[in-house]
Design a protein around this nucleic acid. Structure first.
Lengths: 218, 218
DNA sequence: CATCGTACCGTAACAGTGTTACATAACAAG
DNA sequence: CTTGTTATGTAACACTGTTACGGTACGATG
């Protein structure tokens, strides 16, 4: 008797999340029906796999944070921790600008994730870089790495959100991002001139007009 | 012949905006029907006065920025421009925490306002304070007041948004707000010790556990 | 004061949304 | 193959924003 039921096909789940991310990137409204059409299934699949549209959005946010964590994981660790901190900030801003609608959806309810591991991993990379900067003597001994990372993140998030909502022009990310990074790091104890040099090198791969400006959306 | 029509009653318009703000504060969903019920009219009024729900949201955002400008206008100008800048930041954060849902609605599409004067006025107060700090020798001569004000705002906005979306705990506003203010002002050229003193005095009215924590919502 | 024209306002309908009951089909176990 | 369990598709539900239609209040005109 005790038969195991038909196994849930995980392909449908990933197809739905992928379709949602694509539609988000294409500025097309993500409704249950249009999503089901694009994913090649029916609206019921949304309920069997996510329990409803809110559950789908949670999965989309989760996917967004996972992708972000992947981007940040690619940023290498060097001897200059302040450079690394700036490079992480640049990669963060670049990821947000590469998928602006996904980024906005992520922070619509960022606190509501079923698995915060990806978000924690991203933040931990900031904390780790701040900790290394402290141990290297760049930051003052009583500078709490978690606090510095939080301020670094808050400043970058605010600048990013103001740009993505068209309150500030796109250039603002490049003109104010490094300056804010320098401000937070110098406040943490770093030497101004040395900090400037590290931060500018950390932002360098992004600066040449890199992956920020283009019309790639999502 | 050429008769002037019945004059549009502005009372209905304000009643609708007020009702929307109240419902936003009460965490109750703002739909065309529930809004009309609460305002004592019908859904049609939304279309005659705002052209539709998006128009209503624009009016609500406009009202939010007007209230914010009023709050900032109450912040006095003193001899210490850095103190004033910090006080403006504290008032800004306090206003956001006093009406969190209104603040989030404001920045859902902050760039889409029919009259940006209120938003410009708020930002101009920051620029003016930065300009006075520069003229007083607190900021370096080549520090662009508008750029400093933008960074100040971006940092405060990011911190505020992360708190309002429950990503950071409520205490984060008080623990990181002043620190970010100091970071931006010192980066603009101010002396660290002097800046700390000015900023802490500027935040003082908010610090005692003031209007940040309470359950007043909106 | 009577009249008229304007445009606000309320009712009822429309299209579209998320959601769910039901029947069907697909799969794993005995 | 039979059986039990569950994913799926269809069609309906309640709700949303929106709009056509009459009724009505209002101000200007004669």
């Amino acid at each position: 008797m005790c038969n195991m039921p038909r196994v849930a096909a995980p392909a449908v789940r990933t197809a739905l999340v992928e379709a949602a991310a694509e539609m988000l990137a294409g500025r097309v409204a993500v409704t249950a029906r249009s999503l089901a059409d694009r994913a090649g299934t029916s609206t019921t699949a949304v309920y069997t796999h996510f329990g409803g549209m809110p559950g789908l959005w949670r999965a989309v946010r989760q996917e967004g944070f996972t992708r972000l964590a992947g981007r940040l994981a690619e940023v290498p660790r060097t001897d200059d921790a302040v450079h690394d901190l700036a490079a992480l900030g640049a990669a963060y801003v670049a990821a947000a600008h590469a998928s602006p609608f996904l980024y906005r959806a992520m922070f619509d309810a960022a606190a509501d994730l079923e698995d915060p591991a990806a978000a924690d991993a991203s933040f931990s990379r900031l904390v780790e870089a701040a900790e290394r900067a402290r141990q290297a003597g760049r930051f003052s001994a009583d500078a709490d790495p978690a606090a510095v990372a939080t301020r670094f993140w808050a400043a970058g998030h605010g600048l990013t959100m103001l740009v993505l909502t068209d309150v500030l022009p796109p250039e603002a990310s490049l003109s104010h991002g490094p300056e804010l990074a320098v401000a937070v790091c110098v406040a943490a104890g770093d030497d101004l001139a040395r900090c400037r040099e590290s931060v500018l090198r950390g932002w360098a791969p992004t600066l040449p007009g890199g992956p920020i400006g283009p019309p790639a959306q999502g």
